[in-house]
Design a protein around this nucleic acid. Sequence first.
RNA 1: GUCUUGUUAGCUCAGCUGGUAGAGCACGUCACUUUUAAUGAUGUGGCCGAUGGUUCGAAUCCAUCACAGGACACCA
Length: 504
Amino acid sequence: MVFDNKFIQQRIEKANILKEAGFNPYSNNSKRNTTIEKYLNVNSDIEDKEDKRDENRHYIVNGRIKLFRIMGKASFVKIEDESGMLQVYVARDNLAEGFYNDIFKKHIEVGDIIEVAGYPFVTGKGELSLHATELNLLTKAISPLPEKFHGVTDKEIRYRKRYLDLIMNADVRKTFKIRSKVISLTRRFFEDKGFLEVETPMMHPIAGGANAKPFVTHHNALGIDRYLRIAPELYLKRLIIGGFEAVFEINRNFRNEGMDATHNPEFTSIEFYWAYKTYKDLIEITKEYFEYLFDHLDLPALLPYGDMEVNFANFTEIPLIESLTTIGGVPAEVTNDKDKIVEFLNSKNITVKPGMNLGQLQGELFDEFVEEKLIDPTFITEYPVDISPLARRSDENPEITERFELFIAGREIANAFSELNDPVDQLGRFEAQDAAKESGDDEAHEMDVDFVEALSYGMAPTAGQGIGIDRLVMLLTNEHSIRDVLLFPAMKPIHAEQKNQEEE
RNA sequence: GUCUUGUUAGCUCAGCUGGUAGAGCACGUCACUUUUAAUGAUGUGGCCGAUGGUUCGAAUCCAUCACAGGACACCA
């Protein structure tokens, strides 16, 4: 039984009694005429009045009861709506005959959502409150709320029952408001720059645009498997080929991989593509984007993150190979020699998979010795072509690409490059990835002949970038688990759910 | 995937070297018309995550499993 808990039974009984007494425990007859925040603002002048009240003002507020203090013939109730918390003073003699003792005191309790009408006054302790002249139940909560002081702190409950977390923890609501704002500001920033927001498929015949394992689903009508997208990249580029010159998409990607503090199977990114631009332009627009976010979110340039302090006024740029020596402390003669890199990594007790090419090994060095040291925003540029199957080669050195990744607080935030638009080169890169796949790299990029064909019609020189929104929000809200910036993070099913699935 | 720490009342947590299960909040009853986690009195409330084992006896010791947190590995 779902409701076999004795507290729940008790509250169901209270709801029944209320119903019999003519009070609908699930009334939808709200007559609210202000929010709590507005009420508190509009009536802030009350404390200056001589008798600290104004019985000529009349307000109706709604909210959930968070605290309940009965003191005989009068009570204090704190109710909360989305905008804030308000103290309500409820006295027996201000309400209908019998209501206070028989209904209010006995059958209304913490967790219930009520409507209160009354006038503003300031209590002896100086708190602007609402003096109730009428009070009604709107919604009976038959499950009791968690403890009023500690709230709910168990992370498992907080993630599985996010609604409870949101009821109990105002800070959590704040984090998700910031998340919403970041997405809205991002959309506005790119729209203001003339970018067009588009929607591309979530179900792909080939999971392309990144190196990752996809989720598989099945389309019954066509009798074929589809892959939940791991990235929108190849579709957005098709739009550039079609003649849209600046497009962006903010949406979910799905990767069938592990879960931890920075990985959820579905995550949100923005990808944008900009014709007739290069990765150099992307560096500039990225700086401008961060400035825009910080400005509109009212954040300080020196932003604390855990025990770090990130200086957002200090964006720097450094080529990957150079960073290996200057930041990573890897000897210069090691960085361009496969055997020496393997030897060097081994000497640091790091084993690498056999058969890695030079670019992959350089990436390995970077991950091991540089990444975590990049606290202030740093554009790492000139990535090896071996690990950049979709990026344009540098004209000066065909072994490196016109690419950067942006690192902040030791973590990758963005990945960007001048796009590869030479269809023959692209075909070759895909073939190289195919070969890697053959030899066991199950995250190598899939061959996508259809995309190569699209490129063959000519894609204008284009720069494109992806930014991980979840990690960006983590950074801006000083959260250290991706689950704290996702309303409903992925969780393993609990026992009962597994059982049900087996039965079905 | 590996290591590690948890799982006890609706919630937050105690429970020592094994001996019939504890507190606070919440809830019930009583008192209280300006409280601030209101207060005082009193009472109800447990498959001690699951399954096995050791033992006269297990919340406690052991094993396996489930879920969660943290760290590491891989990835965004």
